[in-house]
C-alpha cells in the first residue's frame, strides 16, 4: 500500500516537472551553439564528410576515449563475475539449418562490418555500429556450435591492442601538433575519398575492434560459464 502510494507520488512529481517544461518548449528551426560551429567548420577542420564521425572521433575524441573505458569496465565486470561464479548446464547441439547458416553467413557479415568501420568518414556507420556488427558475426559462430569458439582466446589481446592503438594515435597528435587526437598529423587529403580525413579511419577501426572484442568477450564468458558439451 505504502509502496503503491510512493510509486504514484514519484511518477506524479516527474509528470509535474515535465508539464512545467511544456510551455517553454518551442520548435528549433536554426542551428545554434556547438552544432552550428561543427556544421560550418567540420569539413575543412577534419576532412570528414560525415559530421557525426567528425564530432565523435575528432572534436569529442577525448570523451569517446572515456566512453570506451566505461565500456571496458562494464565488460570486465561481467567476465570477472562469470569466471568467479560458473553457472553450469551446457547448451544442446544446433539443428541442421542453424549449423549451416552459421558456417556460411559470418564472412559476409564481417565484410559488412569492415565496410562500415573503415568508411566511417564517407557514409553512415563508424566504430560503434561496425563493432557491434562484428560482435554479431562472432555471435553467429557461437550460435552454430555447442562449445566456445576457438578464436575467443585472442579476444583479450585484441582488446588491449586496439585500446593502446587509440591512445597512441591520440598521443601522436600531442607530440607533433600539441593537441590530443588532432587528425591532421598525416594531412587530411581530399575529402570524399577513402584515404582522407587524416587518422579518422584508423581511430574508427580501433574503436570498432575494441567494441567488437568487448561484446564478443561478454558472449564468450556467457558460453564458458554454461560449460561446454
Amino acid at each position: 500500500m505504502i509502496r503503491t502510494l510512493f510509486v504514484l507520488l514519484v511518477l506524479l512529481v516527474l509528470a509535474a516537472a515535465a508539464t512545467s517544461v511544456i510551455p517553454h518548449l518551442k520548435m528549433r528551426t536554426e542551428l545554434d551553439g556547438a552544432g552550428l560551429e561543427y556544421a560550418r567548420r567540420g569539413l575543412e577542420d577534419t576532412g570528414s564528410i560525415n559530421l557525426v564521425t567528425a564530432v565523435i572521433v575528432a572534436y569529442r575524441g577525448l570523451d569517446t576515449l572515456g566512453e570506451v573505458v566505461v565500456l571496458f569496465s562494464a565488460a570486465t565486470s561481467v567476465m570477472l563475475i562469470l569466471s568467479l561464479f560458473p553457472l553450469g548446464r551446457g547448451p544442446t547441439d544446433p539443428s541442421f539449418i542453424v549449423a549451416h547458416t552459421a558456417r556460411v553467413l559470418p564472412a559476409p557479415i564481417m565484410l559488412l562490418a569492415v565496410y562500415f568501420t573503415t568508411h566511417s568518414h564517407l557514409s553512415p556507420g563508424g566504430g560503434f555500429p561496425g563493432g557491434t556488427i562484428m560482435a554479431s558475426a562472432f555471435l553467429l559462430v557461437m550460435l552454430g556450435s555447442s562449445s566456445t569458439p576457438a578464436g575467443s582466446k585472442i579476444l583479450p589481446a585484441l582488446e588491449a591492442l586496439s585500446g593502446t592503438t587509440f591512445g597512441l594515435l591520440g598521443l601522436w597528435g600531442t607530440m607533433t601538433l600539441g593537441q590530443f587526437l588532432n587528425n591532421r598529423v598525416i594531412g587530411i587529403g581530399n575529402p570524399g575519398y577513402l584515404v582522407s580525413a587524416g587518422i579518422i579511419p584508423l581511430v574508427s577501426l580501433a574503436i570498432g575492434v575494441k567494441v567488437a572484442s568487448e561484446f564478443s568477450g561478454i558472449f564468450a564468458a556467457f558460453r564458458k560459464s554454461g560449460g561446454n558439451r
Binding site: G90, P91, T92, P94, S95, V98, L143, G226
Partner: peptide, 13 residues
C-alpha cells in the same frame, strides 16, 4: 530471429 530460434531450441543455456 535466428538467436530466438536457437533459444527455443535450447542453445542459449
Amino acid at each position: 530471429v535466428l538467436a530466438l530460434a536457437r533459444y527455443l531450441d535450447g542453445g542459449l543455456r
